[in-house]
């Protein structure tokens, strides 16, 4: 039951053959050896597998790979082309926004996607004025980053890092 699939991952083009059951996450990890996206729960309940697909943050564990034939996938590794860290990654390092590091690539991708959503004016459930401009307060960051669990408990540092990165990139 092989199906041909074309993906661009962190700027590299790949053509591969996958089982119809293969998720985007397993295609990355088990077929392409791209290990930056992590498997924490495999059911969309932890966010460790978060990658950017055509610029939007998604749980790659709940997507069939074939659905995303032709897509451009960016992992946390791809956010640091040639090893040049993104503003977010530098902020994560500066503020010790992780401990074991397993949820970290997902946190970084999620934060990148989240900042883009906020820049587009998308509200969150804690936004008082749904029609007003988005101010990325700490409360807003906490809510918007709640799809990424961190069992080491680095949340307060993650919020600081994302907040600083948001200020810097403004």
């Amino acid at each position: 039951m092989g199906h041909s699939l074309h993906l661009t991952v962190d700027g590299q083009e790949h053509t591969l053959v996958v089982d119809s059951r293969t998720t985007l996450l397993d295609a990355l990890r088990d077929r392409l050896g791209v290990m930056s996206a992590k498997k924490g729960c495999d059911h969309g309940q932890c966010g460790a597998c978060t990658v950017l697909v055509d610029g939007r943050r998604l749980n790659s564990c709940l997507a069939l790979a074939l659905t995303h034939d032709g897509a451009e996938v960016t992992t946390a590794d791809g956010l640091a082309p040639e090893g040049e860290f993104s503003t977010l990654q530098r902020a994560f390092l500066a503020h010790d926004a992780f401990q074991c590091g397993y949820c970290t690539p997902g946190q970084v991708c999620s934060a990148a996607g989240m900042l883009a959503e906020a820049a587009d004016g998308a509200p969150s459930v804690v936004t008082d004025d749904l029609e007003g401009p988005v101010e990325l307060s700490e409360e807003e960051i906490r809510e918007r980053m709640s799809g990424n669990l961190c069992r080491c408990g680095a949340y307060v540092n993650i919020v600081t890092a994302v907040s600083r990165a948001a200020e810097e990139s403004r």
Partner: peptide, 9 residues
């Protein structure tokens, strides 16, 4: 180990 971890490597 931070630089490797923020890239997922």
């Amino acid at each position: 180990d931070g630089p490797a971890k923020v890239r997922g490597l």
